[in-house]
C-alpha cells in the first residue's frame, strides 16, 4: 500500500514537472517569437505565403462575402475560375457545385502547393462550405494571403445546400 502511494506520488510529481516544463517553454517561445523579426503571426490568416521570409511582401487582401444570386451570375457568365469547396472529402463526394475543387481547410497548404502553377493569380475564386460554417472563410484567407488578387477572392456564405435548393448546377 505504501509502495503504491509512493508510486502515485512519484507519477504526480512527474506530470506536474512536465506541465511546468511545457508552460515555461511555451511562454519563452511566444516571447521569442514576438521579438523575432521573422516571426510567425499567431493568427494564420495574417500569414502571407508560408514560404515567404519577412522581407517578402505579398500585400494584403480580404475575402468578400457574396450571395447565391451573385455567385450564380458570375458562374453563368463564365467569369469564375474555380469554385472551391472546403467541406470534407466525403461530403464533397456526395455532391458539389459543378467544376468545384475540394480543398478542406486542413489541406489548404498541400493542395495549394500542388495546384499552384495551375491556378491563375488574377482569377476569380468563390469559396463555399455549408451554411454557417467557417472553413470557406479560412481557406479564402489562406488563398488571399498567398498572392491571389484582392477583390477576386469571394466567399459564398449561403453554402452548398442553398445552391442546390435554388436548382443551380451541381454534379
Amino acid at each position: 500500500m505504501e509502495k503504491r502511494n509512493q508510486n502515485i506520488s512519484e507519477f504526480r510529481q512527474m506530470v506536474v514537472g512536465s506541465v511546468i516544463i511545457c508552460i515555461t517553454a511555451s511562454f519563452v517561445g511566444l516571447l521569442f517569437n514576438m521579438a523575432n523579426p521573422n516571426r510567425i503571426p499567431l493568427d494564420y490568416k495574417k500569414i502571407a505565403d508560408p514560404t515567404a521570409t519577412a522581407s517578402d511582401d505579398n500585400g494584403f487582401c480580404e475575402p468578400i462575402p457574396i450571395f447565391s444570386d451573385e455567385a450564380f451570375e458570375l458562374f453563368d457568365a463564365g467569369d469564375v475560375t474555380f469554385f472551391v469547396d472546403t467541406r470534407e472529402k466525403d461530403k464533397f463526394a456526395t455532391g458539389h457545385i459543378k467544376g468545384a475543387l475540394n480543398v478542406p481547410s486542413e489541406k489548404a497548404y498541400p493542395v495549394y502547393k500542388s495546384l499552384k502553377s495551375k491556378l491563375p493569380k488574377d482569377g476569380i475564386y468563390i469559396f463555399y462550405c455549408n451554411e454557417g460554417c467557417d472553413s470557406s472563410m479560412e481557406v479564402a484567407y489562406f488563398f488571399c494571403h498567398n498572392g491571389f488578387t484582392d477583390g477576386n477572392i469571394l466567399v459564398f456564405e449561403d453554402g452548398y445546400e442553398y445552391w442546390k435548393e435554388e436548382g443551380y448546377p451541381v454534379e
Binding site: 517553454a25 510567425i40 499567431l42
Partner: peptide
Amino acid sequence: PYSFYRATLEYELLPLFAVPVFSIILPWI
C-alpha cells in the same frame, strides 16, 4: 520558423489555426 511551419502544414494533422502556435511552441519544448 517558417520552414518548420511549412513542414507542420505538410503533415496535414492539425487544423490550420493550430499550426502557427504549434510551430512556435514545439521547438522550445
